[in-house]
Amino acid sequence: MAGRNDPNGPNRDIRDDFRAEIREFLGTRRARVTPEQAGLPLYGGERRRVTGLRREEVALLAGISSEYYTRLERGNATGVSESVIEGIA
């Protein structure tokens, strides 16, 4: 019988869906903003692999570490404070 703490329990699908939504939302929003639009210098010039902001650039603008932003973009949003959400917004 699947309990609340069972990794295969009924809440697993909901959490996976939530994480997927976070990943998609943050990734697509990051891709829409260029460094110039965000007031950042363009590092890498023609060799830049992403059209939008890099994760490190979003983290810099939000005032958080790039490792923390990467965790958020991977869908691990447990315990995120309101100030972090405002910074990313």
Rank of each mutant, 00 (worst) to 15 (best):
F25M: 09
G44E: 10
N5W: 00
I22L: 15
D13I: 13
R4T: 00
P41M: 02
E21Q: 15
E67L: 12
A2I: 07
A20F: 13
Y68M: 11
L61K: 10
A62R: 06
A59N: 06
R32K: 15
P41V: 05
S83T: 12
D6I: 14
E36N: 03
G45P: 08
G79D: 15
A31M: 11
R4S: 05
Y43C: 03
E24N: 12
R54A: 00
I64R: 07
R12E: 12
E67I: 15
L40F: 00
T34C: 06
A89F: 07
F25R: 14
E86F: 04
R48K: 12
R15M: 10
E57L: 04
A38M: 04
Y68W: 12
I64D: 05
L61E: 03
A20Y: 13
S83V: 13
A62D: 06
D13V: 14
T78G: 09
A62T: 09
V58W: 02
D16S: 12
Y69C: 14
S66L: 06
N11V: 09
A31S: 14
R15N: 08
Y43K: 09
R4H: 04
D16W: 06
R29T: 03
L26E: 01
L53V: 03
R23K: 15
Y69N: 07
G87D: 06
R29Y: 03
T51D: 08
R29F: 04
G3D: 06
A31D: 10
L60N: 04
Y69T: 11
S83K: 11
